[in-house]
Amino acid sequence: MSDVTPVTLLSGSLGAGKTTLVNHLLSTADDTDLAVLVNDMGTVNVDAELVADGSELDVDDGVAELSNGCICCELQDDLEAAVVRLARDRSFDHLVVEPSGISEPAPIARLFTTESRVAALYDVDAVVTVLDTPLFLDQFSDTETPERRGTDGDRPLSDLLVEQVELSNVVLLNKADQCTDDELTRARSLVGGLQPDATGIETTFSAVEPDRLLGSDRFDATAIEELPGWKRALSDDAVEHDNHTEDHDAHTHPDEVYGVSSTTICRHQPVSPAQFASFLRGLPTTVIRAKGTVWIAGNDNRITVSQAGPSIRATTQGPWIATLPAVDREMYRSNRPDLPWHEEHGDRRTELVFIGTDYDETAIETGMADTFADADAADSPETHPFPTDDGEEVIIKAP
């Protein structure tokens, strides 16, 4: 065994088929000695028991378990201790980490890539997301299906699904046998729009050749924050528009491969919060992702807006640098020489990307244009839903 062990990180909603995939890999990866770490949200680690049952292993023989928490957040220290202990006590070729279905993959990946005792022992091979494809499609359909919608904890399911796909190297479109050809085509398009570089594999009962997942060397630690399609669209737009020193109402990036297009809008101008909230609530279901930074009239805080299907959230991200005292402003600017800066408005701007399939781009452009207001305009906080305090988050539209 080499000094550094490859690790595959799994993500996916509850019931998508992650545990089935783990058992499949344990039973078919004959040439690879796997270690598995599983995590469930209950006091009894059901997933660990299922892995053990499916692989004819005892829970303490090749399977280390963390229970009663999510390994991406409150049990982060336990995860670090568990993977270090595994590397110390056992000899294996590859580690598979299966977190709870409500886990975000990015914090887990960072544990394995930042300077730590874990990063010295492991190297992330790939982030694999297992999709319950019918459920995934339900989140972005025109038809309400209340029994399948909802949240995991306080997090809208559609929002979590989108972020899991955005940070993936490989996406398993599982339960493909429950979908029509048209539905699978739509699912592939949605995945491609959210994460253009991900490899999509259609599966039934999570059956996939182990060598398509293990040893693929798909993960790039330096690109983890730049993987999503929405970030790429904004980045491409920044190059084309001279770092946003000039305003533009809209710029569209068609994707001929996936049939998905993205529209970016950037202005050094605030939006009327009431009108902007109305615009967001009226987004068509064919817009699967919208995200960016918004200048709210009368608000000195940067607002990040994140839409995933039927879910829309807004979060304050601290003050605009242009609103700080002159000494602080110049210090921040000297530390960030690439910061887009407008002669009059500084870094204050509205910069959004919309990603979707067959949506009316003109309607998006016109709708956004109607939300822009004068720089000194302001609405009373009582008349709109956007947050005003630093670190505050609000739900603009719930699924």
Rank of each mutant, 00 (worst) to 15 (best):
Ala378Pro: 04
Val118Lys: 00
Gln307Arg: 12
Gln195Val: 13
Ile71Ala: 04
Thr5Asn: 01
Pro381Val: 11
Asp217Glu: 15
Ser100Ala: 12
Thr245Asp: 09
Thr350Ala: 02
Asp247Ser: 10
Phe92Ala: 06
Thr203Asp: 03
Thr293Glu: 11
Ser2Lys: 13
Val63Phe: 02
Trp341Glu: 10
Pro270Tyr: 08
Val170Arg: 02
Phe136Met: 14
Gly101Ile: 05
Gly153Asp: 09
Asp247Trp: 02
Asp389Ser: 13
Ser91Glu: 15
Ser380Lys: 02
Gly69Met: 10
Glu147Gln: 07
Pro270Phe: 04
Asp360Lys: 00
Val84Gln: 10
Leu79Ala: 11
Asp58Gly: 15
Ile321Gly: 01
Pro284Gly: 07
Asp53Arg: 13
Val46Ser: 01
Asp3Glu: 15
Phe276Gln: 07
Asp125Ile: 07
Ala233Glu: 12
Gly259Val: 11
Asp138Trp: 02
Leu339Lys: 02
Arg329Ala: 13
Gln195Met: 12
Asn299Val: 15
Val353Arg: 01
Thr371Lys: 02
Asp236Trp: 09
Val208Lys: 00
Tyr332Lys: 06
Pro310Ile: 05
Phe372Lys: 01
Val97Leu: 15
Met331Phe: 09
Arg148Pro: 00
Pro387Gln: 11
Asp159Gly: 06
Asp132Ala: 08
Val257Phe: 07
Asn174His: 06
Ala176Glu: 07
Ile303Thr: 15
Glu344Lys: 09
Gly150Asn: 04
Gly15Leu: 01
Thr43Tyr: 02
Arg188Pro: 01
Ala233Leu: 14
Thr43Phe: 00
Ala81Phe: 06
Gln164His: 10
Asp58Val: 01
Glu115Ala: 14
Leu324Asp: 10
Arg188Leu: 04
Val130Thr: 10
Leu173Arg: 02
His244Trp: 15
Thr203Gln: 03
Val83Glu: 06
His268Trp: 11
Leu21Cys: 03
Ala176Cys: 09
Leu339Ala: 10
Gly101Val: 03
Thr199Gln: 14
Leu161Thr: 07
Ala207Trp: 00
Asp77Tyr: 04
Glu163Arg: 05
Leu21Arg: 01
Val239Ser: 06
Thr133Asp: 00
Phe112Trp: 05
Ser262Thr: 13
Asp152Lys: 02
Val44Leu: 11
Leu324Ser: 11
Leu21Ser: 04
Arg267Ile: 11
Val22Met: 05
Ala233Thr: 15
Val128His: 04
Trp341Val: 11
Arg149Phe: 08
Glu382Val: 14
Glu361Gln: 11
Ala377Val: 06
Phe386Pro: 08
Thr133Phe: 00
Thr323Val: 14
Thr293Gln: 12
Ser262Lys: 04
Pro381Asp: 07
Glu226Asp: 15
Met1His: 12
Leu324Asn: 07
Asp30Thr: 14
Glu56Arg: 08
Thr285Asn: 12
Thr199Lys: 10
Thr366Gln: 14
Glu351Leu: 13
Leu50Thr: 09
Ser116Asp: 08
Leu121Ile: 07
Ala373Cys: 10
Ala16His: 03
Phe136Gly: 08
Ser141Tyr: 08
Cys73Phe: 05
Asp211Lys: 06
Asn68Tyr: 01
